[in-house]
Design a protein around this nucleic acid. Structure first.
Length: 196
DNA sequence: CGGCCGATTATCT
DNA sequence: GATAATCGGCCGG
């Protein structure tokens, strides 16, 4: 196993989003090791990107995105969901990659306990809020350093998916974001990935 | 301080 | 496909 380094994250979000496919999201919870294969990501890059939360400028919520790469940006939405991002690019440039789907690899019993509702059903970790639930990730992880072994959340290098099985599409859910940001193909997903 | 809206999900038709 | 659930962030007054 090899924890992704600060250098890995020190690139534009688009490059990091592509390269995170095939990596393993790992969480240590009560001595249990939970891991998921990353199969879907989205890039959010800079204040100019009107789909990015940082397009509103530096606020208490978005400050972490302006900080050094390799930290977690975890935010709350729709009154009930936590979404996990990895901060990328250089300090001062707000950029992040949203983790949108994983395939369960390790610790599925604990993941099922974290997410009893529809646990082990097809697609039970294939959404940005589903995976945070399964891995027990919430706002307490906001700003956490993903490059430190002292923490209980990180990403490990995995097998790289070839371009032939990687699809690039517009980002999901940006209903009121103006063009071209709404349609720019900054979502990456692995063809045919499913636990069904 | 009020109001709108959201990087979603599960359920119902 | 449509929609309720549910609340913090952000903006305007």
């Amino acid at each position: 196993m090899c924890i992704l380094s600060r250098k890995f994250y020190s690139r534009p979000a688009l490059a990091v989003a592509r390269d995170l496919l095939g990596c393993r999201l790992v969480r240590l919870q009560n001595g249990h090791r939970l891991a998921g294969l990353i199969v879907e990501t989205e890039a959010y890059q800079g204040e100019e990107d009107l789909g990015c939360h940082a397009s509103a400028g530096k606020t208490p919520r978005t400050t972490v995105m302006y900080g050094p790469p390799g930290h977690a940006y975890v935010y709350f939405t729709y009154g009930m969901h936590w979404l996990l991002n990895a901060v990328t690019d250089t300090e001062g440039v707000p950029a992040a990659v949203l983790l949108r789907a994983v395939l369960p690899l390790e610790g599925q019993e604990t993941m099922a306990a974290n997410r009893p509702y529809l646990a082990r059903q097809p697609g039970w970790t294939d959404g940005p809020a589903k995976l945070t639930q399964a891995l027990g990730i919430d706002g307490a992880f906001n700003t956490a350093d993903l490059c430190s072994r002292e923490n209980t959340l990180w990403i490990e290098r995995g097998d790289i998916f070839p371009d032939e099985v990687v699809q690039q599409t517009p980002r999901v859910g940006l209903t009121s974001v103006p063009e071209p940001w709404r349609s720019i193909p900054w979502r990456f997903c692995v063809d045919g990935s499913s636990d069904g």
